[in-house]
């Protein structure tokens, strides 16, 4: 039973990873928090739903969702952040600006879906259950795990093994210096936001399939979970976000199974406060200087 829960947790964690890694990637590059990330995630679910509704195969819905969410994230960066980055107070401004963008996107989907809960047609993913070693795994779970692993691996390869990845890291270190060596930072930002959005969109499709419930508020809890995960993993750290997503997925499934229902969220965020109390920069975050706030 515990083993089964852990397995379920890992699958859920994989989906969180898709969401959180993109969230954290963007933060790592620009040091800005994109609060519209939950709305981008939701957009993925909606686009896939309407593609399947229109008769397209699921895989097409998946691709369309990733592309649409990627482009949306790119637009958010251009519209909401680009101007702000040149002014002094981008950290606060980005939170406000992206919160506004999230609201706009949410209202849009509320309007399109007419505040209805949408469900994928029955059998979009055939209900097949595999059993082994006394554990049960559904085809959907396998699909989710496979998609999550594949996407994260491709991403890791992209960031750590390609010229693009090197450029991303150069821009992260110093925008000015990277321009001197001929990198166009705006192109890099477009690409990183596209990737981050595409990952979120993919996560949206998987979550939409898993719970077969798509509605215009579905992004909110994931944004919150995204927060908890990056606090756990350290803002800006990709491996940290990956690890934290898996831990988070397991803790969440376990707490749903063993804690009084309804307390899960409160439990998770209280744990987050405890972590912040002990490690102000997140569990795996690096120490950022600052002796102004107390003893040295």
């Amino acid at each position: 039973m515990l083993l089964q829960q852990l397995l379920n947790g890992v699958v859920v964690g994989g989906v969180y990873a898709l969401f959180a890694v993109g969230f954290n990637l963007v933060f790592g590059v620009q040091r800005l928090l994109n609060l519209a990330h939950g709305a981008v995630f939701m957009t993925g679910a909606f686009v896939a739903y309407y593609t399947v509704r229109a008769g397209g195969p699921l895989i097409l819905g998946f691709v369309a969702a990733a592309v649409a969410s990627g482009v949306l994230a790119m637009i958010i960066e251009i519209v909401c952040f680009r101007r702000l980055r040149k002014s002094g107070d981008a950290e606060f401004g980005a939170i406000i600006s992206s919160m506004g963008a999230g609201m706009v996107i949410m209202t849009f989907w509320q309007w399109v879906s007419q505040t209805q809960v949408l469900r994928f047609p029955f059998d979009t993913v055939p209900v097949v259950i595999y059993r082994f070693w006394g554990l049960r795994v559904s085809l959907l779970q396998l699909l989710m795990a496979a998609a999550a692993i594949a996407i994260v691996l491709v991403m890791a390869w992209f960031i750590y093994r390609t010229a693009f990845g090197r450029q991303v890291r150069a821009v992260t270190d110093s925008e000015r210096a990277s321009m001197l060596v001929g990198i166009n930072p705006n192109r890099i930002y477009n690409l990183t936001y596209f990737i981050s959005g595409a990952l979120a969109g993919a996560a949206g499709v998987l979550v939409g399939l898993a719970f077969n419930n798509i509605n215009f508020t579905m992004g909110e809890p994931y944004l919150m979970f995204g927060f908890a995960i990056i606090i756990l993993g350290g803002l800006g750290s990709i491996p940290g976000a990956l690890m934290a997503s898996l831990i988070f997925g397991m803790v969440q499934t376990l707490s749903i199974a063993y804690l009084p229902s309804g307390l899960t969220t409160a439990f998770i965020f209280s744990a987050m406060f405890l972590i912040l109390l002990v490690r102000p920069n997140g569990l795996m975050g690096r120490e950022e200087a600052g002796s102004l706030r107390g003893r040295r």
Partner: peptide, 23 residues
Amino acid sequence: TGMLAVSGGTIRVDDTDITRAPA
């Protein structure tokens, strides 16, 4: 002035140790 942590040694003002005091 307490803006940076001290790695070693002491700072005193009129015999009061302020090495680790906040800014």
